[in-house]
Nucleic acid binder design. Structure first.
Lengths: 225, 225
DNA sequence: TTTTGCGTAAACATATTGTTAAGATGGAAC
DNA sequence: GTTCCATCTTAACAATATGTTTACGCAAAA
């Protein structure tokens, strides 16, 4: 199977389980990293930035719940998928796990078929929300990479310019009032003149080359569809 | 079968066994070296630095256990895999072997299928921790060796510098906010000034020579793709 | 014609980062 | 213990990108 470019961290204190999970996921094209306990999992997570983390609930040196809780507090792991490995019919863990932000559960003993299908399903599900890119027409806006790609060419925008374009692109065709724009980009605290928006709009139009922003006189601006 | 680039040293006093093992492993793509007794094994190990050593427990001129014990005392062979060849149901050897740092056992008479699968499994297990390198463009980052290689030339980075570069390289193209960087590299406990990050970034850029880190003003830093 | 709202360019102000050097720290060698 | 060394951190200042305002022009609506 061709590589999927996804890293999976597996944490369990039983080497046999690690072996089985790792083998099956590797065969599916995933890259796997293993950890033998909670502390090890946290360290490896920090090191490898996996896309998915599988945590055994019962582990020495911080159990799965604790690890999950800890990771979720950090913004970097906000979008990381987390699966718990639980004993069959362990309802308490399920409820607690959901509170801590688990994405799914797999019961032991692990069926390779279920394992693989669940993992695939999760990655399929986040495919959209994970890349928060917005595409309208030939313009691709990627807030993660902080670049605007247009016809395959990357264009660098300044922070405010980017935020402004991104805001308009969230609802293409919808008109954003000047007030809306001000409160969204600048916040309610700072007060800037009206011309400020114009100037930024101009710079965006200039840098993009394409006229993708329409002026609605007396109202605001909108993205063309 | 294509070569795996792994060397296996087989030590046994029975030529027939050497023949069988060597044949099956070679057919799997491994490179094999044979030794006829304990002393010979030690000498060949020193000479060839094999990735795996298979030791017959009963051998003239130092038996398998003695050889294992001797090798394990030397740091060079700390990570070398060692498999013992034992008579069927030789419990004592198993227990002793584990004490001496054996990784697995194979009972005689040897089944080629079991042999191959065990060897493969062992290499698969150690493959993960060994394969931690990140490569982006011409830059190779190896957290194990703690070395950054760029165009075949090794560059030495200090700890913080290395961690920072490594963090950015985990998700090339993605922008890491200053907060993220701080919490990842420095943790939430310690508080360092903003300039600290800049200084480290500068040192990295200086040492690498290539401008592989882009600064996104008001946002953070990112690795170029 | 007058008014209103927006576009544009340049000037200005500010925030953010780059750079350098100098202490602070801690570990290794002696 | 002392000395040495590399690393880390901070502070001060320079450089630059960015954000904002100003001033003026234009066009369409009243």
């Amino acid at each position: 199977m061709e590589p999927k470019g996804k890293k999976i961290l597996i944490a369990d204190d039983e080497p046999d389980i690690l072996e089985i999970l790792s083998y099956n996921l590797t065969r599916e094209g995933y890259e796997t990293i293993t950890a033998k306990d909670g502390e090890d999992a946290i360290q490896k997570a920090r090191l490898y930035k996996p896309d998915l983390i599988m945590l055994d609930v019962m582990m020495p040196n911080k159990n799965g719940m604790e690890v999950c809780k800890l990771l979720r507090t950090q913004p970097v792991y906000q979008d990381t998928l987390i699966i718990f490995l639980t004993a069959l019919s362990d309802e308490t863990s399920h409820i607690k796990g959901l509170e801590y932000g688990a994405d799914d559960f797999i019961s032991k003993p692990v069926s390779p078929k279920i394992l693989v299908s669940k993992v695939n399903a999760l990655f399929r599900r986040i495919q959209k929300p994970d890349d928060k890119t917005i595409q309208t027409g030939s313009i691709i806006i990627d807030p993660v990479k902080f670049v605007v790609t247009i016809n395959g060419q990357d264009i660098v925008l300044a922070k405010k310019e980017f935020e402004l374009l991104h805001l308009l692109a969230t609802k293409p065709g919808r008109v954003f009032l000047r007030n809306e724009i001000l409160s969204q980009i600048w916040g309610t605290e700072v007060i800037v003149g009206d011309r400020t928006i114009d100037v930024h709009i101009r710079k965006i139009r200039q840098k993009l080359g394409i006229d993708c922003i329409t002026t609605v006189k007396g109202v605001g601006y909108k993205m063309v569809v």
